[in-house]
C-alpha cells in the first residue's frame, strides 16, 4: 500500500512534465490550426496546405532532410567504425563532438567567409586549376553545411553501438569462415542497426524543419516548411497556418518514429 503511494509520488514529476510541456503545447498547436487569419473557426488552413505551393515545400523539406541524413550516415558509419579501432577513442570522439559546442549561427557565418568568391574554398579550387565557382547560395553549400552541423549526432549513437559490440562475435564469424563483407553484413550491421536508427532520427527530424540555414547559406534558394512556419509566426502573424504546417510535421515525425522505432524482439 505504502509502496504504491511512493510509486505514484515518483510518477508525479514525470506526469506533470508530460502534461504541461508535451500534451498541452501539442493541443494548443492543434487548436490554433483551426483558426483562419481573422480568428474565425475554419478548415481553410488545411485546404490551403494541400495546394501546390505547400506540397512543393513539403517535398523539398523531405528531399533535403533525406539527403542530409543519408550523406551524414555514409560518412558517419565508417568514421564511427574507425574510431572504435583507435587507441584513444574517447579523445577522438571528443574532438568530433567539440564543434557542436559552438553556436550554430557562428558556424553558419564562418561558412559565409569560407565559401565566398574570395574565400578559402575558392582559392583552393583556383590553386588546383578548377577555377573559381559559385559555392555560396547553392544546394551544395546548403547540404554541406547541414551535414557538417548534424554529423556529430549521427556518429555518437553509431559509435556507442559499435563500441558495445562483443568482439568475440567477430572472431566467431571469422572462425566459421565468413568473409569480411559477410561479417559486416550479417554480424556488425545488424548489431548496430539501433544506433543507425537513432542516429537517423536525431538528424532527420531537426533537418526537416531547418530554417535559419536556408537563408544564411542557401540564400532562400531552398525553401522548407521550417521557413514557412517562421514566416507565418513572425511576419504574417497567421498563427493558424503556421500551426497547420506544424501539425503536419508532427504527424510525419510520429510516422517516422513508428516506422524506424524498435519493434518487439522475436516478432
Amino acid at each position: 500500500m505504502n509502496n504504491k503511494i511512493t510509486q505514484n509520488l515518483y510518477l508525479l514529476p514525470y506526469a506533470l512534465w508530460i502534461v504541461l510541456f508535451v500534451i498541452a503545447p501539442l493541443l494548443l498547436v492543434l487548436y490554433y490550426s483551426f483558426f483562419d487569419i481573422e480568428g474565425h473557426f475554419s478548415l481553410m488552413n488545411y485546404m490551403n496546405f494541400f495546394t501546390p505551393v505547400y506540397m512543393k515545400m513539403a517535398f523539398s523539406s523531405f528531399w533535403y532532410a533525406f539527403l542530409i541524413t543519408f550523406i551524414s550516415l555514409i560518412f558517419a558509419y565508417p568514421t564511427a567504425y574507425l574510431l572504435t579501432k583507435t587507441r584513444h577513442k574517447q579523445l577522438w570522439l571528443l574532438l568530433i563532438i567539440v564543434p557542436s559546442w559552438i553556436n550554430l549561427l557562428l558556424k553558419a557565418y564562418a561558412f559565409l567567409g569560407i565559401f565566398g568568391t574570395k574565400g578559402i574554398a575558392n582559392s583552393f579550387l583556383e590553386a588546383i586549376g578548377v577555377g573559381s565557382k559559385q559555392i555560396l547560395f547553392t544546394d551544395f553549400s546548403f547540404i554541406f553545411v547541414s551535414v557538417y552541423i548534424f554529423i556529430p549526432f549521427m556518429i555518437l549513437p553509431i559509435f556507442n553501438s559499435l563500441n558495445e559490440m562483443n568482439p568475440s562475435l567477430l572472431d566467431a564469424a571469422n572462425d566459421l569462415g565468413a568473409s569480411k563483407w559477410t561479417t559486416f553484413r550479417r554480424v556488425i550491421f545488424p548489431l548496430t542497426i539501433n544506433g543507425v536508427k537513432s542516429g537517423c532520427q536525431v538528424v532527420f527530424i531537426p533537418a526537416l524543419s531547418l530554417f535559419m540555414l536556408t537563408r544564411l547559406i542557401a540564400g532562400n534558394r531552398v525553401i522548407t516548411l521550417g521557413t514557412a512556419i517562421e514566416q507565418h509566426f513572425l511576419v504574417t502573424r497567421d498563427w493558424g497556418m503556421g500551426s497547420t504546417i506544424a501539425v503536419f510535421l508532427i504527424i510525419i515525425m510520429f510516422l517516422i518514429m513508428s516506422v524506424t522505432g524498435n519493434r518487439k524482439r522475436g516478432v
Binding site: 557565418y109 559565409l112 565566398g116 568568391t117 574570395k118 555560396l136 547560395f137 537563408r215 544564411l216 542557401a218 540564400g219 532562400n220 534558394r221
Partner: peptide
Amino acid sequence: IKAIVGDESRLLLENEE
C-alpha cells in the same frame, strides 16, 4: 537573383560577393 538574404547583405556587397 543570387540570394534573398537579411542583414548579411551589407557584408556581401561590401566584400564584392
